[in-house]
């Protein structure tokens, strides 16, 4: 019998891909140290789906997001190898001016800390429509109407009154709504949401997530949701990529990962969060620390902390491979892990 989530994944597989990341390596040069923040990352995103990227801070989630839009300053960052293809175009080889046309219009981004994401010296409405004014020659008056309309869409009460206010006059949750309005302004095909709820109060977090989901349902946009919080991803995403030390460790439909993780790191993450159903009463933290990204060990980077490790893990790179239909894992013992109960 085929599991229902399997069918969902198969259906998703029918859709054409919108973003393909192939073998991406991003390094930061800090003095004489080289920090490898993304290490041979490959990921295909299909049109209209929501993909979660989870991992601890420093696992390379944000770097991955920012390198898609080429927002990382270089120096110190360098793309060592790899390709990023968006709607058939190779983003990494585009000239900067063409990249500017893509930013905001085709791919938009929502940022972690709303209070730092808006410029304190300009009115909010002005900042929301700036991209459209520059790219589409929107006039001042039309831009204001557009800003009001966008603010209304993201649920700001009486937007005509508030469109000319400054960021410091708004609460964090409201500013994040404005940042989302800014992201959807250009009608993007892909939205990168980099920890959109981390800096907000718990009650506001759910509202913002719900807003993102509503907008996605209404427009059919593709969404990449970066979070360190497994719970956020579980509620919202079709598929999940688990990142560790700059690598994707596991990639599978969300329900699959939560029911049958096939990588010891995902297993560890799931065991370290409380479960609603009360199973597995004692929380188990993962022992040890993530490795330094400037001195990565040979083989699997998780090996030093892994209870399943064997000498074979440390000899060569462990690539991501398909261990079940639509379920990828970068562990040589993936099949063995699948059998372990949560």
């Amino acid at each position: 019998m085929v599991a229902p989530e399997q069918i969902a994944a198969d259906n998703a597989a029918m859709k054409p891909s919108i973003l393909e990341i192939e073998d991406l390596v991003v390094e930061f040069h800090q003095g004489n140290k080289v920090v490898r923040a993304a290490n041979h990352v490959s990921l295909t995103i299909r049109q209209g789906e929501t993909v979660g990227i989870v991992g601890e801070s420093g696992s390379g989630k944000s770097v991955l997001c920012r390198s898609i839009l080429r927002l990382l300053p270089s120096p110190p960052s360098f793309v060592k190898s790899g390709r990023i293809t968006f709607a058939g175009r190779d983003l990494l080889s585009l000239p900067e001016t063409e990249m500017q046309e893509i930013r905001g219009a085709d791919i938009a981004m929502v940022f972690q800390n709303p209070m730092n994401a808006l410029n304190p010296v300009w009115p909010i409405g002005d900042q929301i429509t700036e991209g459209e004014r520059v790219h589409r020659g929107l006039g001042t008056r039309a831009a204001r109407t557009r800003a009001v309309e966008l603010l209304k869409r993201v649920g700001i009460p009486s937007p005509e009154m508030r469109v000319d206010e400054y960021p410091h006059q708004w609460s964090g949750g409201m500013v994040q709504r404005a940042v989302i309005a800014m992201a959807i302004a250009g009608g993007p095909k892909l939205i990168l949401a980099d920890e959109p709820t981390t800096a907000l109060d718990v009650t506001i977090q759910d509202q913002i997530l719900a807003l993102l989901m509503d907008l996605q349902a209404a427009t059919g946009t593709t969404l990449i949701l970066v979070s360190h919080d497994m719970a956020v991803v579980a509620e919202t995403c079709d598929r999940v990529a688990v990142m560790y030390a700059g690598r994707i460790m596991e990639l599978a439909p969300t329900a699959d990962v939560f029911a049958h993780p096939r990588h010891p790191y995902s297993l560890g993450l799931l065991r370290s969060i409380p479960r609603i159903d009360g199973k597995g009463q004692r929380l188990e933290p993962i022992p040890g620390q993530p490795p330094s990204l400037s001195e990565l060990p040979a083989g699997c980077p998780f090996m030093p902390r892994c209870s399943f490790a064997s000498p074979a893990c440390g000899t060569s790179d462990v690539p991501l491979r398909e261990v079940a239909k639509g379920h990828f894992s970068a562990c040589i013992k993936a099949e063995e892990i699948a059998a372990v109960a949560l």
């Binding site: 920012r66 927002l71 893509i102 930013r103 905001g104 981004m109 410029n119 991209g131 940042v179």
Partner: peptide
């Protein structure tokens, strides 16, 4: 961060 945001707007 708002400089990155401005660049992300294109």
């Amino acid at each position: 961060e708002y400089i990155t945001v401005a660049r992300a707007k294109g």
